[in-house]
């Protein structure tokens, strides 16, 4: 479970996150929806311990992400904003490196990486160096290395950005699969159809504050609009 309370974070003069509170429960896919620069990435970065909030609290399960950073990080699998890979390592080596940093047992590491490679349909590229991988292949490597330790909470920052249809499908299937396993999935996106299709719960962020929370239907109702996109635009404009 991921719990965020009154988060606030500024960089120099710019306030990226003003007041964000929400909960992402287990077995639920929660979508963080908002226009570019709304504070989605910053919220996620606070959650995975990359930046420190100015005020407010963030918890992964019962661990405070700031005071118990490492404990909190053990419980999350993250697909961050930057998809950097080590060009001289193979896909499998990437998965294993991250598994070892999570102190996954060596035997389990071998079986689990095989499993992920199969799940993401990476058999053909698993032992090739990642230099020259396509966008989709790189994304698969990033995704598999973030799931190697069987996290109970998964954070995905714009997971389908720039992917082709096939890979997007795989990512969607994995999100559903994680949900069925009881994982709390939190993902950010600015793609309306993606969010409405996958999420059980939507949190709309605009200008660093939460403007609406609920299911697709609830959000449409609260904005009294027929489709989600119109509701989104209406809610966001109200703030700005």
């Amino acid at each position: 479970m991921i719990k965020v309370q009154s988060l606030c974070k500024s960089f120099n003069e710019i306030t990226a996150v003003k007041d964000v509170s929400f909960t992402a429960e287990n077995s639920v896919v929660t979508g963080l929806l908002g226009p570019n620069g709304a504070g989605k990435s910053t919220t996620l970065r606070i959650l995975y311990g990359l930046v420190k909030q100015d005020s407010g609290d963030a918890h992964i399960d019962e661990f405070n992400v700031h005071t118990h950073r490492v404990e909190a990080q053990r419980r999350i699998g993250v697909l961050p904003d930057s998809h950097g890979l080590y060009i001289r390592l193979t896909a499998r080596e990437h998965i294993q490196y991250f598994g070892r940093l999570h102190q996954v047992d060596e035997n389990e590491l071998a079986t689990r990486s095989d499993e992920l490679i199969r799940l993401l349909d990476m058999q053909g590229i698993a032992d090739r160096r990642v230099e020259g991988f396509s966008q989709g292949e790189r994304m698969k490597v990033c995704l598999s290395r973030s799931l190697i330790h069987n996290p109970t909470n998964v954070l995905l920052d714009e997971p389908t950005n720039g992917l082709d249809v096939m890979t997007t499908r795989t990512v969607r299937e994995i999100i559903t699969e994680l949900k069925n396993q009881g994982v709390a999935v939190l993902f950010s996106s600015h793609l309306m159809h993606e969010v409405s299709r996958l999420c059980d719960k939507i949190i709309i962020i605009s200008d660093g504050t939460v403007v609406a929370t609920g299911t697709t239907d609830e959000i449409r109702e609260s904005a009294s609009e027929e489709n989600l996109e119109d509701a989104f635009v209406k809610l966001v404009e109200k703030v700005i």
Binding site: G49, V70, L85, H102
Partner: peptide
């Protein structure tokens, strides 16, 4: 430069 630092330090390591 290769933007691998962010993914790296998300791992539960000091």
């Amino acid at each position: 430069e290769r933007k691998t630092l962010e993914p790296l330090i998300i791992n539960p390591v000091e």
